[in-house]
Design a protein around this nucleic acid. Sequence first.
DNA 1: TATGAATGAGCATTCATTCAT
DNA 2: CATGAATGAATGCTCATTCAT
Lengths: 226, 226, 226, 226
Amino acid sequence: MTALPPRTRNRLAKERRILDSALKVFADQGYSGTSMDAIAALAGVSKPTLYQYFGSKEQLFGAIMAEQRDTMLGAFEEPDGLGLVPELWAFSWHYAGTVLRPEFLSLARLIIGEAQRFPEIGRAYQAAGPERMLAGMMDYLMARKAEGRLTFDDAEMAAEDLWGLVLSAPRNRALHDPENLPSRADLNRFITNGLRVFLKAYSTDPATDLAQLQALSEQGPAQGTP
Amino acid sequence: MTALPPRTRNRLAKERRILDSALKVFADQGYSGTSMDAIAALAGVSKPTLYQYFGSKEQLFGAIMAEQRDTMLGAFEEPDGLGLVPELWAFSWHYAGTVLRPEFLSLARLIIGEAQRFPEIGRAYQAAGPERMLAGMMDYLMARKAEGRLTFDDAEMAAEDLWGLVLSAPRNRALHDPENLPSRADLNRFITNGLRVFLKAYSTDPATDLAQLQALSEQGPAQGTP
Amino acid sequence: MTALPPRTRNRLAKERRILDSALKVFADQGYSGTSMDAIAALAGVSKPTLYQYFGSKEQLFGAIMAEQRDTMLGAFEEPDGLGLVPELWAFSWHYAGTVLRPEFLSLARLIIGEAQRFPEIGRAYQAAGPERMLAGMMDYLMARKAEGRLTFDDAEMAAEDLWGLVLSAPRNRALHDPENLPSRADLNRFITNGLRVFLKAYSTDPATDLAQLQALSEQGPAQGTP
Amino acid sequence: MTALPPRTRNRLAKERRILDSALKVFADQGYSGTSMDAIAALAGVSKPTLYQYFGSKEQLFGAIMAEQRDTMLGAFEEPDGLGLVPELWAFSWHYAGTVLRPEFLSLARLIIGEAQRFPEIGRAYQAAGPERMLAGMMDYLMARKAEGRLTFDDAEMAAEDLWGLVLSAPRNRALHDPENLPSRADLNRFITNGLRVFLKAYSTDPATDLAQLQALSEQGPAQGTP
DNA sequence: TATGAATGAGCATTCATTCAT
DNA sequence: CATGAATGAATGCTCATTCAT
């Protein structure tokens, strides 16, 4: 990583300020509700600068979406060898901490709200976020199946089940009601219950696993999660 | 219900045309993207009439949302005594047929997209739709528990699980990608799998229930569902 | 011609004010140099009203040009039986009084200046103005030929010659130099000279005709011409 | 003319590129329709360079016009001793080939279109082009008069007549309708006819001259004319 | 000297809203 | 009661011009 010429550094900094401001305003007001003036004001640049950097409102919107999509890549990380139940537990909390963050929810609302006008963006986001996550989860679950810890026929469905059991309910609520994010206790309830059902359906040793889950649930969230 | 004077009938008809047109345009273009001109044109009335009937764009939006919320009430119907598994099966297909209808999805996208600007609306919709449905489902599940057909501790969680297992995945995809609605075969896969997991976790007689589910799955969707 | 409803009368009056103002501003500033604000201000209406009446700048421009084109129709009038030379004399002065009027010149400059961007308009104006005039003149000249007063082979060329001899020089100067319109005396010189050459070339009795022309020239312009 | 230092050569080359590009764009889009960006892009220089070289849009426009005016000087060349009729014939074709060239017409449209906003330019162009040409022609005609080949009182009028008879019609058409330039055959008709009228009016030996003209007309355009 | 980057002011156009009829 | 007509205030975007480098 070599030093950039000052021009370039300045340009990049301004580009960053514009992108950040635009994301904020778009997420807040929607595409049509957002004015280029508002973005320029928040970024502290003039309107022509906006246009010099991004060409048009639609292109600026596209640039943000592309960036957010890229940012989302690699969200799934292989867990760290704690054993099945702690891994699922950690994963659930980690993912909840990502997916229920206010900015993440705002972005999701924006994308959903504009999906009719910008279908490619909704599709691209789907491919870069949820589908990637799903693929990672499938790999993980198949590895556990190979070890004899889980049993299922259709790995994709198993991965979907995990997500649907653990996070769909709080996320749906949060999407509709931005001001009432689930509390830590709420999440504990959703996650514990979701994993319980998952393990009942898929574990090769449900009794042990459920006991371990119960213990984790009583300790509270995994460390390092919001 | 007595006959209305013609003036009133006329007024009601016009009100209806306005509401229908407005819903269509709002769902299509979002709140900010919708112009009162577009609504007036589609409804075939003049703009001042719009304002006479509904006061302002925001109030018109509110009126539509209130109406849609009311329309949604009672979406849950007690099933008809076919027994647990066919009832869950029928319910899943019926609900999928509601929730994945394009107009319903458009409305949901609209509400989610505007949830930041109109938080009461998102909240109200949540209370009138999903929560009501959830309550109905809880009652149903508790009745089955009382009959000894199901076993669980937390009825709310069980109801959430059913929804999360059966419909959250296709609905989420459809929200992001309006042009790729799930096919009948896709739905069959999601519903069959979701109910299988649900029964594994909650049925008091899983072996019998899963066999019955398998039979239904091979027959295809319940009759009368889209 | 029946009385119009007041709405319509009002509308027509406003339309007229807009067209007049727009013609003035366009002729003054050219198409690109004209702002809708300037037109609206001069017409005393708001900008949206402009758009309600004429849709867009380009359409407003087109409307003006169409109207001016129609106005120009019938500019050629059969002279009134004074005999060949007085008729040509009267016609020349009448036509000079039309074609060298400042507004007419401004319009011509506008059309010529925008001919590259609006080729149909230049063409349409050509067809409605000069070509129509030419056709009228051809008819007139052919009638005089039939009477034995003139002699020529190509009536179109004869008509072009008349125009080219009498008015092309002052008009060309005026097009380039709006502030120096030819004086009455200048015109007298151009017209007298042009008709003299025309008669030398085409008259069957040049001696008599030239004498008559000389007399007219000494009396000054035909009555009723500017 | 000594070698210039490279800096200066570079500067001159750049100046030239700017002037050429600007002329093209101005002629195409008119003064108001032309953006400094467009000129800079076509010239391959940056906008500040434009301003450094020419100060402002208006000054750049003035510089182009001054240059074009100078370019036009000396357009009239003494003919080469072929005798009256061939000389007039050659002159007419040569002048038609200049005045009806597309770039020349574009420039004329530009000047006429902007004559109201830039009156000095129209006036200057008039003085440098047409009037100079006219003066040359007057000298030529007076020389022929001195030789007894022509007869007239007012040399200026005779010169105007020649122009008005031969070229005003095709030029006027071309000014209004840029896409329909007159064909070679059209020009032959205009020129032959115009010279015929001129000779009838001014020649001291019309019979001989008209016969010679007829022969030239049947041979077609003078050599070396477009 | 030449330029990438920046901007205040202006452009055509559209919006939610309100009179006058 | 309903509407044609009107408008102040934006909106997305572009322009001639000028810094900072």
